[in-house]
């Protein structure tokens, strides 16, 4: 059974501004998938739909064979879904709403009815694994953006979901924090989790996915396939606004090459 079956899904904001148009895809358990596309191409909206935070105007999204509509997400069904799917928001400011780091990491397990001792164990271990145990009692608003991202991921891992939805996970991070975060996500992927990453950074897609879907400015999928195949088609990447010619200077000499992240 597929994790997600997405069939011809469309969505618009206020009935006027199209955010997703006729998108279809299937995602199998354990797959690592990249949603590629320029800003405003509908990647984030699709992730929010996959997390059942917004629902399609037309078409259908099914999670493990069950259609995601509001009526299907009450009580145990909602708990089951939330235990299995977790979304990393692009803006950690929104995701970290609790007063302290520990409160925030513990929030998911506590809401999802995980027994108290188990929830505490998971929260402590998530902080340890992400090397942020020292931040345990800090206020969330005091953290750097890199620390906020780590805390946000710790909060998701404490839920131990089978599916991780990541919205521009490395946006705004310095190179070292970026590298650390990729390693963390990769190791989560190695443990068998399904990882779906929305990004316009092709290096990130290369590291975190085996399969890629390319979104266009028309909010629809214009290409899909193995990530290696998609990323090796440089002509089309340029057509899709995913690469550009980058020039820079080394020792007084100018270089130019394809740039695969924005």
């Amino acid at each position: 059974m597929n994790i997600y079956d997405i069939d011809n899904v469309s969505f618009s904001y206020s009935g006027k501004f199209s955010a997703i148009s006729g998108v279809s895809m299937t995602i199998a358990p354990g797959e690592k998938v990249a949603l590629l596309g320029p800003n405003g191409s509908g990647k984030s909206t699709l992730l929010r739909m996959m997390d059942a935070l917004v629902f399609p105007d037309s078409g259908e999204i099914s999670f493990m064979g069950r259609v995601l509509i509001e009526d299907n997400l009450h009580d145990e069904a909602n708990t089951f879904f939330r235990k299995n799917v977790a979304l990393l928001f692009q803006n950690p400011e929104i995701q970290l709403f609790s007063p302290t780091v520990f409160d925030d990491v513990l929030f998911g397990p506590m809401q999802l009815g995980i027994p108290r001792d188990e929830a505490l164990h998971r929260a402590e271990e998530s902080l340890e694994k992400l090397r942020i145990a020292a931040l345990r009692d800090r206020s969330t608003h005091e953290l750097s953006i890199g620390e906020k991202k780590r805390v946000a991921i710790a909060g998701l891992l404490a839920i131990d979901p089978g599916v991780l939805l990541l919205d521009e996970p490395t946006a705004g991070l310095d190179p070292r924090s970026c590298r650390d975060l990729i390693d963390i996500i990769s190791s989560a992927g190695e443990s068998g989790k399904t990882i779906i990453t929305a990004t316009h950074d092709l290096h990130l897609a290369d590291e975190l996915s085996d399969k890629a879907f390319v979104f266009s400015d028309e909010k629809t999928i214009i290409a899909s396939g193995a990530t290696n195949d998609v990323l090796s088609d440089t002509e089309r990447l340029r057509e899709w606004n995913l690469t550009h010619i980058h020039r820079h200077k080394h020792g007084g000499r100018w270089h130019e090459h394809e740039h695969k992240h924005l």
Binding site: N78, R82, A86, N91, I94, F97, F107, Q111, G155
Partner: peptide
Amino acid sequence: DGVYEAMASRGFT
């Protein structure tokens, strides 16, 4: 709105 979504996403009802 965003915070509510982030909370709902982690099981808040």
